[in-house]
C-alpha cells in the first residue's frame, strides 16, 4: 500500500497526517511543539504509527519550521502554510469561497473563486486575536483554554473588550473583572474580541462570501465560532479536521508531486543536529545556523554574502 505524509510544524502545535492514494486520512496526530520543532516532528512520526507494509512515496512539510524539517526528512514538497491550507480545504470542500484560519501566532483570510486562491491576507506584526492571546488570557483567568469555548458559548451577555491590541485588551479585561463582571461573561467577551480583531485587522474590507470555512486551532473554540456567525450574519462551517488542514494539504501536494522514490521506514533513526552561531567576518553579523545530518554538515543558513 502506498501512503503520503504531511507535517505542519506551527509555532504552538505540530500536526501530522498520513493519507492513502485516494486522499483518505489514515491516521493523524496533534501535539504541542514546545519550542522544539525537531523533537515534535519526531514524536509525530512515532505516533503516526506507519504500518510496516506501507511504502511512503511522498513527504510534505509546511508551517513556520517547514524548511528545517523538510531538510531533515528529505521532503519532496516544502510549501508555505497559506497554499497548504487552501489546497487541503478545497480538496475536502470544493465549493468553499472563504477560508478563515486562526492559528497560534498568525491569522489569515483566503478568498477562493472557482477553486483557485484569488486573494489572501495575513495579520501583520501583532499577535492580538490569535490562539496565543487566548491561551495567555486563559492562564490569567485560571481556566483551561480548552474549556473557553463551552463557557463562552453558554454566556448570553459578553462583555465589550477593546480588541485592537493585546496589551489594551488585557488591561481592559482586568478593569472589567474588577468592576464586577462575571468570569463567564469576560471569557465570552474575549472570544468576541478575537472575532472583531480578525475582521478589522486581517479582513480589512475584503468580502466574505459563503460558504465560509473556519479552521486552525482556534476553530475548535465554540465560542469564537458562535460570534463569527453572529457578527457576520452568515453560516460559518467549522470542519471536524479543521486543525489538520495544513498538514492534509501538504500531504496532498506531496502525493501530486511524488517523484517515484520510496522513503525508508527508518525516518526516526536519522541523527539531526542544528547549531547556531554568529559570523563576524563583515559588518552584516549574519546569524548562521549549521545543520548536521548523521554528523555531516549538510547546509548552513542565514549567510547574506553567500560565503557559506
Amino acid at each position: 500500500m502506498n501512503c503520503y505524509l504531511g507535517i505542519d510544524i506551527g509555532s504552538i502545535s505540530t500536526k501530522g497526517v498520513m493519507i492513502d492514494e485516494d486522499g483518505n486520512i489514515l491516521s493523524s496526530v496533534y501535539l504541542n511543539t514546545d519550542g522544539s520543532p525537531i523533537e515534535a516532528s519526531r514524536k509525530v512520526l512515532k505516533q503516526l504509527s506507519i504500518p510496516e507494509d506501507c511504502a511512503i512515496r511522498g513527504i510534505g512539510t509546511t508551517g513556520s519550521a517547514r524548511k528545517i524539517i523538510g531538510l531533515m526528512l528529505n521532503a519532496n514538497v516544502i510549501k508555505n502554510e497559506i497554499t497548504a491550507h487552501a489546497v487541503g480545504t478545497i480538496h475536502l470542500y470544493p465549493e468553499v469561497r472563504t477560508i478563515i484560519e486562526i492559528g497560534g501566532q498568525d491569522s489569515k483570510i483566503i478568498l477562493i473563486r472557482n477553486g483557485v486562491v484569488t486573494d489572501y491576507a495575513m495579520n501583520t506584526l501583532c499577535a492580538a486575536g490569535t490562539g496565543s492571546f487566548l491561551s495567555s488570557q486563559a492562564k490569567r483567568l485560571g481556566v483551561g483554554v480548552e474549556e473557553f469555548g463551552d463557557i463562552a458559548h453558554a454566556s448570553n451577555t459578553p462583555v465589550k473588550i477593546a480588541a485592537r491590541c493585546t496589551v489594551f485588551a488585557e488591561s481592559d479585561l482586568v478593569h472589567k473583572a474588577q468592576i464586577g463582571y462575571t468570569k463567564n461573561d469576560i471569557i465570552a467577551g474575549l472570544c468576541r474580541s478575537i472575532v472583531l480583531n480578525y475582521l478589522n485587522n486581517v479582513c480589512k474590507g475584503k468580502k466574505l462570501e459563503e460558504p465560509i470555512v473556519f479552521q486552525g486551532g482556534v476553530s475548535k473554540n465554540r465560542g469564537v465560532h458562535k460570534y463569527f456567525e453572529e457578527i457576520l450574519g452568515k453560516k460559518v462551517i467549522a470542519l471536524e479536521n479543521g486543525h489538520l488542514m495544513g498538514a492534509y494539504g501538504v500531504a496532498l501536494l506531496a502525493k501530486k508531486k511524488s517523484d517515484g522514490r520510496v522513503y525508508k521506514n527508518n525516518l526516526l533513526d536519522i541523527k539531526f543536529v542544528t547549531n547556531g552561531s554568529e559570523c563576524h567576518d563583515c559588518s552584516n553579523n549574519c546569524e548562521l545556523v549549521r545543520i548536521y545530518k548523521d554528523d555531516k554538515l549538510i547546509d548552513t543558513w542565514g549567510s547574506k554574502c553567500g560565503k557559506y
Binding site: N80, T83, Y120
Partner: peptide, 14 residues
C-alpha cells in the same frame, strides 16, 4: 518570504 511565496503560488494558480 512566507507572504511572498504564498503570493507567487497564488499568481501561478490564477
Amino acid at each position: 518570504l512566507t507572504r511572498m511565496e504564498a503570493f507567487c503560488d497564488m499568481l501561478e494558480m490564477r
